[in-house]
Design a protein around this nucleic acid. Structure first.
Lengths: 108, 108
DNA sequence: CTTTCAAATCGAAAAATCTCGATGTAGAAT
DNA sequence: ATTCTACATCGAGATTTTTCGATTTGAAAG
């Protein structure tokens, strides 16, 4: 079964997507919006980075399934996908102290 | 206050440490040990990678505070630090659907 | 003391990531 | 149709990461 290895790589990609401070700032910024999301230009203003850089990081987060994007006219709306990070929290519980026994077949 | 930025970078480093499938395999392997940990040579055998490669990844995980190491004679014992990942789970809850409102000063 | 064994560290090549300016694209506005 | 605006994508240079073989360290054994 290749599935186990594939799942490992996908999990690693998910974590790696969070492994950059700029991308964490994007998440914090988007989650803090009362509207639940923002347009690229707003993120650019907030992060003070080149627009191409911001677009790149947004793409990384979207590819990891952490952000969802939706075209609004010529603007692009980005927002956090809550379920994806909830999954990640469950994955982490595998190593939690309150979950002492690890089943044999567990794959992160 | 530089603290906010520093915390961001530390959080990013923590996630980045998990952002590699080999390191996830290390975590799974160590957590699955009945004794709660393993020696480097055992991890090397399991991962089928060069010893120097395994040592490198172990160091990354230790530097991130995810693993703890302890010398046992000429062997080195490695085990998962549960509390560290529990912290990470709490961080993630910031973006959880069940936590709709994000306070202004929240730093991941 | 020398040898042996486990593990850390070093050095370097290959690969991936990050960043930006420049260019492309698609919808809006004139 | 042309221009403008928002964003995506491209290309490239700089930095970081990954991986391994080789060497070093440090403890145990002979």
């Amino acid at each position: 079964m290749e599935t186990a290895q594939a799942k490992l790589h996908e999990a690693a990609r998910l974590y790696a997507a969070l492994g950059h401070s700029l991308r964490l700032q994007v998440l914090i910024f988007l989650a803090a919006q009362p509207s639940g999301g923002a347009y690229v230009s707003e993120v650019v203003t907030h992060l003070r980075r080149a627009q191409s850089t911001v677009s790149h990081h947004l793409k990384v987060l979207v590819d990891a399934g952490i952000l969802a994007t939706e075209p609004h006219g010529q603007w692009s709306w980005y927002q956090v996908v809550p379920n994806r990070l909830a999954e990640l929290r469950e994955h982490l519980s595998v190593f939690d102290a309150t979950t002492p026994v690890l089943a044999t077949g567990v794959v992160l």
